[in-house]
Amino acid sequence: MATAQELSNFLAEVERRAYRQTAYAVRDEHAALDIVQDAMLKLAEKYGARPAAEFPMLFQRILQNTMRDFWRRQKVRNLWTSLLSSFGGHSADDDEHDPLETLETGQRSEDEPEAQLERSQTIAIIERAIEKLPARQREAFLMRYWEDMDVAETAAAMGCSEGSVKTHCSRAVHALAATLQHYGFNQQGLKKPGAGS
């Protein structure tokens, strides 16, 4: 049985990734925060008595379900955003805006502006590619490779077979590789800002 400290440590460890993961899926940062909040609460309320080792799988499952509720309610996407922009409005969180803007403003201008720019462009392109993956592929990919969950855990969290997890992952990797190639990445890895030229 997990202690409150274990729960707290677990959430602190995963909360930021969970938030990004959710934002990739729902493409709405406010909703993503709400979903993560709800998922945390559900984990604590319903599964607090489970062993801490099960938290990653349980939390992912809850997160996916909470997102799915969100999809059900949002099946038809509100077109206001594009409409308003055609009306001439400028909005800070317009979905159609250049993804690079947000990333650049989020970064301090440091000694290596060019490398920095390249880096943030790479991140933006990859984030966009992640968003564009079909939902199940994205889930599988993020759980397996970002959350470091094994195939069995991922399958349990997604409520599907281990075979499907492998299929989803492999399709996701192919799609991502194609995107990267399209943008001409040499796949050397991401340069750390300030870590040599």
């Binding site: 990004r20 880096r119 490779y145 970002w146 990797v173 991502l176 990445f185 890895g189």
Partner: peptide
Amino acid sequence: QQESTVKLVVQALDASVENLD
């Protein structure tokens, strides 16, 4: 190529978490 794709994507995702508001 697959491994390097995964590695690059994961690095980018990690970096995106560092930039949170």
